[in-house]
């Protein structure tokens, strides 16, 4: 049983991954819900973790693996309103996941059932990695950079030094380069405006497919900030933290992407 205060939050999470993966299992235990899945070309991996405190009520008295078709769950979530409360429940035997939406004023109740799938998914182990550079920036900024550079080239090189992070691309029409300085660069309406916050052990320069990076920016509505973790010989980790309605950290959505080989 999991009761979420705003159904729209779960919809945003599923919408941010449904175009990348077809099927996945939701692994539920008493602490929360975990998903891990790889895109069919094995170039990227998606994981999310929805901690217990994301939900108003949460109980799971035994470990469950729920096989989900992503397009189907997205269709059901689309039937609710974003500020509806949503109760997720499984039956016994576990072959369906039920969705009960209730409008904020309580005047409308709707219920949908999703047929679960028998999926044999391999559980991969994601190693604890010491990244050379960790870059935190506004989601909207990262999304704009990716979309702008994708109009010029297919891949983007991210170069991180102590002073700045640079995004650049080359295509048939020419080149593009965007550079963000380290640190808070000013204030706007009494709010700090960040270029990029950079934690660095060693400078890194790696290239990535813009097509995938643009997929990842679909998670931009989950959080203000995105965190890019980079290191030589390791996949890029693009992380969006997930917050509950009390603005407490309540999980994450992480994308991993293999760097491209520079030819």
């Amino acid at each position: 049983n999991a009761l979420i205060k705003q159904a729209g939050l779960l919809k945003k999470i599923i919408d941010a991954i449904k175009d990348l993966i077809d099927e996945a299992t939701l692994d539920c235990d008493n602490d929360g819900i975990y998903l891990q899945a790889m895109d069919s070309s094995h170039v990227s991996l998606v994981t999310f973790y929805l901690k217990k405190n994301l939900f108003e009520k949460y109980s799971c008295n035994r470990n469950l693996s729920l096989g989900i078709n992503m397009t189907s769950i997205a269709k059901i979530l689309k039937c609710g309103m974003s500020d509806d409360t949503l109760l997720l429940e499984t039956n016994n035997p576990i072959d369906i996941l039920s969705f009960k939406f209730e409008s904020r004023r309580g005047h409308k109740l709707s219920q949908f059932q999703l047929r679960l799938m028998n999926l044999e998914m391999e559980r991969l182990s994601i190693p604890d990695t010491e990244y050379s550079c960790i870059i935190e920036m506004m989601c909207s900024e990262f999304s704009k950079v990716c979309h702008d550079l994708a109009t010029i080239g297919d891949s983007m090189t991210i170069t991180c030094t102590k002073k700045n992070v640079t995004f650049d691309t080359t295509g048939d029409l020419g080149t593009g380069i965007v550079s963000l300085k380290q640190g808070v660069v000013g204030s706007e309406n009494d709010e700090n405006v960040y270029a990029a916050s950079i934690k660095i052990v060693k400078p890194v320069s790696l290239s990535f497919s813009l097509r995938y990076l643009i997929y990842f920016t679909k998670a931009s509505s989950l959080s203000n900030k995105v965190i890019l973790h980079m290191g030589e010989e390791v996949p890029l980790m693009v992380e969006y933290k997930i917050f509950n309605t009390y603005e407490e950290e309540a999980g994450y959505l992480r994308y991993f992407l293999a760097p491209k080989v520079n030819e």
Binding site: M38, H42, V43, E233, P235, F256, A258, P259, K260, V261
Partner: peptide, 14 residues
């Protein structure tokens, strides 16, 4: 496109 890692292989070996 050529990539530095096959992620399935990468995460399988941990």
């Amino acid at each position: 496109d050529k990539y530095q890692n096959d992620l399935l292989e990468y995460f399988r070996t941990g």
